[in-house]
Amino acid sequence: GGYEIPARLRTLHNLVIQYASQGRYEVAVPLCKQALEDLEKTSGHDHPDVATMLNILALVYRDQNKYKEAAHLLNDALAIREKTLGKDHPAVAATLNNLAVLYGKRGKYKEAEPLCKRALEIREKVLGKYHPDVAKQLNNLALLCQNQAKYAEVEYYYRRALEIYQSKLGADDPNVAKTKNNLATCYLKQGKFKDAETLYKDILTRAHERDFGSVNNDNKPIWMHAEEREESKGKQKEAGPYTEYGSWYKACKVDSPTVNTTLKSLSALYRRQGKLEAAETLEECAGKSR
């Protein structure tokens, strides 16, 4: 990028963060404002350091939920960065993204979307179409579209993000399961229940295989146990959970917030189909893992 944050700004930033984390905004804000004033006096308004300082102050406002004030500062910082660093600089993309986040927090999804799209274009141009940062930007864009109920677009963006994460970070990266979960939510919104179900099962199978090895007759992910229990309901007499389900205890040990969410979501889908035994099996497992 050619620009490096000067040491004194870094020190100031750390100080400001410290005050802000203690809730001492009455100290943090004037500190930023004084620094801004000094910087503008020595370097002029259109200087990268001023933009950085504006970003620091915007963070303090964001932490106070003063999104409007924060957005105002970021707009200013954006203009400076475009002028001093060029329109396609990663710093411009980052500022556009954060501006979109602030608009999003105020429910201004329509205004946020074009900013997010511009950030995406810059990142694609600078980093290439298959960089994880591009995937992250696609995620934010999907979320903004989701809030506007534009599900076809949401689906498209999540699919692209998933493709990037899978190819660049590998199938077991947490981002893959997270994005699959988000994509499944989008399927649900469109009434594509079968597609959602397939994705949820895929997440659970992968998580299981990662921890316990390939799936076979003696090593099944939780959803297979759930469906077997559903199919054999009434036929089987009560037995202890461990003997009844073979590797059930293993299936239950798969543990992460994403997997837990997936268990609950798939359980809701089972319930919708009247597969109550299967639903309960997953719920018990979700209950245990949290």
Binding site: L59, A94, N97, A100, V101, S265, A268
Partner: peptide, 20 residues
């Protein structure tokens, strides 16, 4: 329920904005 997943999703801030 099904809302669980979407409730988790949040727009992500880019912290690199201070490192340029």
């Amino acid at each position: 329920d099904q809302q669980g997943a979407s409730r988790q999703q949040q727009l992500e801030w880019d912290d690199s904005t201070l490192t340029y």
